[in-house]
Design a protein around this nucleic acid. Structure first.
Lengths: 327, 327
DNA sequence: GTGAAAGCGCTAACAC
DNA sequence: GTGTTAGCGCTTTCAC
């Protein structure tokens, strides 16, 4: 930077200003500095800048995995929104392990990230306390806080419990009473199962068959799990899959068996991924506005970081049952 | 940090050592420092550490998008490998736009990342030069350098051209002569099309029908594209899809039409994603070791960063035609 | 509109 | 095994 200053015949501060606040520098000076930067191939050291200004221009996000389309689309929209606002995304994958999430938070705080986006709202009290103490803007996503809990800071999500309830109601409305559930061993899937079972029970259905796959739940888990469900309870006529890709797997399994969907068995997906629209039959599913969730999270963060008076800090973006041909 | 030092009754350096090189500190001192850290809730500022040591412990990766399973699994394995080695991943998405890639490289260099992972080998000469000048360890992935080009630094990939050739040969071997290709408007897909066409031509087949989807290519693009191909050339009997998910979309489209696969039309996928094993019929595909690619890239970087004498810096991990039921 | 001085919170190098 | 000194490369005051 001092080389640039010397070549442009100005001081260090002026170089800094020319780069970060070009408006506050005389046009001629600006030209001279830019020429010098160009000529020397100067690349400002953002680490030094971060240290001096105590703003890193980095936001970190922690998701269970990006190899699940459901999260990757949220992350993609988040990254895009942040990038447009001049921030970059540092990505952490927890692998669905709470311990890994806490460890990631530690290093992110150590890097003095300007903001943090978390997946879910089931963080431990210790983690919640640490984040509050750190004073970092935090956005939780993909869930609403369970009753005693409140958001750590900001939140954009939906009720997984209610989504499960709506799924059960949708199937029951269509006359199904022998219900099954295929999900994953993780918080949000369990919440949906809870809601699913609650509505089933309220309708006198107590034997919901559930299969929880240890993450990552891949599409090729679906067929075998459906087989297990049917082995235990052959009369099942409807299955709620916690991911459209799993649902597509179930469709393929039915195809193999020569079963009609929804004639022999109805299939309800989750997410409204592109595959739901492409499948045959078209998949009924629970639409989640994944990209919007990432975008809103990014916007909330940007607004806070810009010092704007914060708007609502808890956004329920809801969900929607999309009835297509598979139920 | 000075609060910790004072409370523990030691100097700043000792605190630093206790945290970063605990072996080089007396057990009692270590205990005292750790107690002080705990009591004060001290979180080391890694930015300051980076500036002082000129090592950021961050590796950046640039991929077109993480909403494509093909890349997300590579990134996931990369992130995991780096995390195990004490590095974190800063993620950039280029959206398939070369300009965005270059801009991302600039900020990453500004952050003084310790390493960089790029997707593809088609970087512009200007970008290549900049990276070489910066002296940052770079790993290119997902392709081999085209003849005149050499790797910028390190590389782990496979020949997309050869993969396209093998795909064509596979279909021709099974007696198909009316071939189609569904891919994306992006470098690697174009290379595969080039190889596909070359082998077709060598076999006297000159009218390969190609549909290139502007990224992102989603599964629900597959059906309409197949329809377009068939509208132009109804006698097509085999289609090579540049992504297993697209291939699954074609399977669903055939299902809609009541067409048998591979009886009426053979479908060859790409990637060997889980969906290939779950589909019905099971998808023949071009297997790419995506996770291994990410892992190898991470290992190469870690070895270099550890100052180890570098092993081979160009790894061709190849590909494999997996013949299943759809061709 | 521009500059001088004083750090940001750590680690490297060298002593002891 | 521990401490002292001197920065890392910027940005933030506060002058002028």
């Amino acid at each position: 930077m001092s080389d640039v200053a010397r070549l442009a015949g100005v001081s260090l501060v002026t170089v800094s200003r020319a780069i970060n606040e070009p408006d506050k520098v005389a046009p001629d000076t600006l030209t001279a500095v830019r020429a010098a930067v160009e000529q020397l191939g100067y690349v400002p050291n953002l680490t030094a800048g971060s240290l001096a200004s105590s703003r890193s221009r980095i936001v970190a996000a922690i998701v269970p995995t990006i190899s699940n389309l459901v999260f990757s689309e949220t992350v993609e929209a988040l990254a895009q929104t942040l990038a447009d606002g001049g921030y970059q995304l540092l990505l952490g994958q927890s692998g669905y392990r709470p311990g890994d999430e806490a460890a990631l938070v530690d290093t992110f705080l150590g890097r003095r990230v300007d903001g943090l986006v978390l997946t879910g709202s089931a963080q431990s009290p210790a983690l919640r306390a640490k984040l509050k103490r750190a004073g970092v803007p935090v956005v939780q996503t993909w869930d609403l806080p369970a009753p005693p809990n409140t958001p750590i800071d900001m939140l954009v999500g939906f009720s997984n419990l209610d989504a499960g309830k709506a799924a059960a109601q949708h199937l029951i409305d269509r006359g199904h009473r022998a219900l099954a559930f295929i999900g994953a061993e993780e918080d949000r899937s369990r919440l949906r199962l809870e809601g699913f079972r609650a509505v089933a029970a309220a309708n006198g259905i107590d034997d919901v068959q559930a299969e929880l796959i240890r993450p990552p739940a891949l599409i090729d888990d679906a067929g075998p799990r459906l087989a297990q469900i049917l082995a235990r309870r052959p009369e099942v006529t409807a299955v709620f899959c916690n991911n459209d890709l799993l649902a597509a797997g179930v469709l393929f399994e039915c195809l193999q068996r020569g079963w009609s969907v929804p004639g022999r068995i109805a299939v309800l997906g989750f997410g409204d991924l592109a595959v739901a629209r492409a499948a045959s039959p078209r998949l009924s599913t629970v639409l989640i506005r994944r990209a919007e969730m990432g975008e809103r999270a990014g916007q909330m963060l940007l607004a806070r970081l810009a010092g704007e008076t914060t708007g609502p800090s808890l956004v329920d973006i809801g969900f929607e049952i999309v009835a297509r041909a598979s139920t």
